[in-house]
Every structure is written in C-alpha cells, then in structure tokens.
C-alpha cells in the first residue's frame, strides 16, 4: 500500500526546498546553541537530539512546537514517537505524504534515543505501554476485537479501506508493541483507546487474539487474504467454473 506518487519534478523541487531549509536551520541552530548546547543531556538524549535535528526538526520545529509542515509534538508522547519511528511511518520523504508502514529509517538504539530526546523536548502524552500478550485472555480478546476493531481492520485482521483516503492496515505485520501503541495513541484517523476504556489486561487480550489469528483460524484451508465474499466469488467463477470448462474441453468434447 504505497502512497500515491507525485510527479518527479514536484518531488525534486520538494527535496531541494527541504535541503535548503534544513541547511538554513542547521546554520541558525549552530549559532543559537553556541554557549551551552547540552544542558545535562544523557548520552542517549544527545544522540537523539542529533538525529532529531537532522531528520525531524524541519517539520516539527527545533523546539518540537511544530511548523506549517508538521504538527507539534507536545502531548504526543513516547508511545507515538516509538510507533511512528519503528513502523517507518516517520520520517516522511515529503511533508504532504500519507504515512505508511515501511522499513524503519533508524536502528532500535537510534529510535530509543529519539524517544528519550523528544520526551525531554516535549513532555507529556502516553508512555510506551507495557504489554504481555502471553497472559491475555483469548476469548475476551476475540470479543473485544470484534466489537471495537473489526469494523475497520476487518474480522480477519485483513485491513480495509475506511474512506477519506484512509486504509485501516492489515494487522499481520505489526509487532504486538506497535499494535498496542497504536491502540493507545490513535495514529492517523484511528481513535485512541485510553486505559479508562480499555484496561491493560483488555489490551493484552486483544494482542493475544491477534497473535493467535496469525497462526490459527484457517482450519478451512487457503484464506484468500481473509477478505471474504469478494475473493470467494472470484475463485468460484475463475477457478471453479474455469476448471470444469477446461476439463470438458481437454477431454475431447468437440469444440
């Protein structure tokens, strides 16, 4: 599911503008931070700051207060920072792009550093949830998933279009932690589910069910992407009827 491509020229221009902007910002930064650059930043935070200034500050601002290109990070919280970085949704190639899942741009250590730095820069927001899917109640998870998640992500966790140009992604690739973070922060157009409505045990139950679904639930055979009747109809017509007609024609019925 890639974002719609823009014309090559537009991308090039955007890149040039971004590069220029970045240079200007870095210059200003170097100037303004002359005397006391690190006010007792830990080693982690310093690394995070370096990465932040290089990859995030253009849109979210040097102080994390946001710019015309990107929202403020105040109140976003470590869960959100970890989620967007570890799923490769950030950094965006272009500020206007739809964030989609891709290979993360940073290593785990770098992500941890960025999380630490943004926590200092813009405090508040949901912390990275502590999860333990192994203790989750499978049956409760199934019920919660069907009641709260399946309307968008599909009963088989296959994902689906939900309008407004959005796609609720399939849940077969995200790690349990990423799913848990998404539940708590509500990325994109997804509503956030706080602990008051969905306890940590509930969340573990949902994760347990989703993990269980990856290996199970396919007693009937090939799953056709779990998208249901659309794929079933296609198979019935093309494979089913097609196969029968093919056999008729190959076994010597006159054409």
């Amino acid at each position: 599911m890639s974002a719609p491509r823009r014309p090559r020229e537009a991308r090039l221009l955007a890149r040039l503008v971004r590069g220029g902007l970045l240079l200007a910002l870095l210059g200003q930064l170097a100037w303004s931070f002359r005397p006391s650059s690190s006010q007792a930043l830990t080693a982690d935070e310093s690394l995070g700051r370096e990465l932040y200034l290089a990859s995030c500050s253009t849109c979210h601002g040097i102080d994390g207060a946001g710019t015309e290109l990107g929202p403020s990070l105040r109140g976003a919280g470590p869960a959100a920072v970890h989620f967007v970085l570890s799923t490769g949704r950030m950094p965006l190639a272009n500020p206007g792009d739809q964030p989609v899942r891709q290979a993360p741009a940073f290593s785990e250590r770098e992500i941890a550093a960025l999380v630490a730095y943004v926590r200092r820069l813009a405090p508040g927001g949901p912390e990275i949830p502590t999860i333990d899917p192994a203790t989750g109640d499978l049956a409760r998870g199934a019920q919660l998933y069907l009641d709260s998640c399946a309307a968008c992500h599909g009963a088989g966790a296959s994902g689906d279009s939900i309008g407004g140009g959005r796609i609720a992604p399939a849940l077969d690739r995200a790690t349990p932690l990423e799913i848990a973070e998404a539940v708590r922060i509500g990325p994109g157009t997804m509503p956030a589910f706080g602990e008051r409505g969905l306890s940590p045990a509930d969340l573990d139950a949902i994760l347990a069910y989703l993990l269980w679904l990856r290996e199970n639930g396919s007693r009937g055979g090939l799953q056709l992407g779990r998208v249901g009747a659309v794929a079933e109809g296609l198979v019935a017509i093309v494979v089913g009827l097609g196969l029968i007609v093919l056999v008729i024609r190959l076994t010597g019925a006159r054409a």
């Binding site: 399946a150 309307a151 968008c152 689906d160 939900i162 309008g163 407004g164 959005r166 509500g186 994109g188 157009t189 997804m190 509503p191 956030a192």
Partner: peptide, 14 residues
C-alpha cells in the same frame, strides 16, 4: 455505524 474517523470526527458506515 462501527467506524469513527477521529481525524475528521466523522462516523462512517462499514
């Protein structure tokens, strides 16, 4: 109506 699109604050019918 099972879908709540938080970004645009819309309810959508699946």
């Amino acid at each position: 109506l099972g879908l709540y699109l938080a970004a645009t604050q819309e309810l959508r019918c699946p």
